[in-house]
Simulated assay, not measured.
Amino acid sequence: MKDFFYAIADFFVDYGFAPYDALRAMELENWWTANMFSWLFTIIGFAAFIYWMKELKTFNDNNEEDKSVSAHSFL
């Protein structure tokens, strides 16, 4: 059983976290490249947030949501 857990650890150390090691190496070499990835992830998150808010507004405008007090049992 001990070998099983060592195999899981070896997988993640050697292969699973390899992309993070590559990003760390780029960050040490070039500050602009590291910040480019940060801005890219921020823009993707912001675009997903805007899409989600647009979808919520669509459902709200169609009156599809049950807004009664007894709509959810935990209320």
Rank of each mutant, 00 (worst) to 15 (best):
A34V: 02
A34I: 01
A34D: 02
A34L: 07
N35K: 13
N35S: 08
N35I: 12
M36S: 14
M36E: 13
F37I: 03
F37C: 04
F37L: 07
F37R: 10
F37N: 04
F37V: 06
S38H: 06
S38F: 07
S38N: 07
S38Y: 05
S38I: 04
S38A: 03
S38R: 04
W39D: 15
W39K: 12
W39M: 15
W39E: 15
W39N: 15
L40C: 14
L40D: 12
F41G: 14
F41C: 12
F41S: 12
F41E: 10
F41R: 14
T42M: 09
T42Y: 09
T42E: 02
T42R: 04
I43G: 11
I43K: 13
I43L: 14
I43N: 11
I44K: 11
I44Q: 12
I44T: 14
I44V: 15
I44H: 08
I44E: 13
G45K: 05
G45T: 06
G45P: 01
G45Y: 01
F46I: 14
F46E: 08
F46D: 05
A47C: 13
A48T: 10
F49W: 07
F49H: 08
I50A: 15
Y51L: 04
Y51A: 06
Y51E: 03
Y51S: 01
W52T: 09
W52H: 05
W52L: 11
M53H: 06
M53N: 09
M53D: 04
M53Y: 02
M53T: 05
M53F: 03
M53W: 03
M53E: 04
K54P: 00
E55C: 05
E55I: 04
E55P: 00
E55M: 07
E55S: 08
L56Y: 04
L56I: 06
L56G: 03
L56P: 00
K57V: 05
K57Y: 08
K57D: 07
K57H: 09
T58L: 03
T58E: 06
F59G: 08
F59A: 15
F59C: 13
F59E: 15
F59K: 10
F59T: 08
N60S: 09
N60Y: 05
N60Q: 06
D61V: 01
D61M: 05
D61T: 04
D61H: 02
N62P: 00
N62G: 10
N62H: 10
N63M: 10
N63P: 00
N63Y: 00
N63L: 06
N63I: 01
N63Q: 12
E64H: 14
E65W: 04
D66N: 15
D66T: 05
K67Y: 14
S68D: 00
S68K: 01
S68Q: 01
S68P: 00
V69K: 05
V69T: 03
V69C: 03
V69R: 02
V69W: 02
S70L: 02
S70R: 00
S70H: 00
S70V: 01
S70E: 06
S70P: 00
A71E: 01
A71L: 00
A71Y: 05
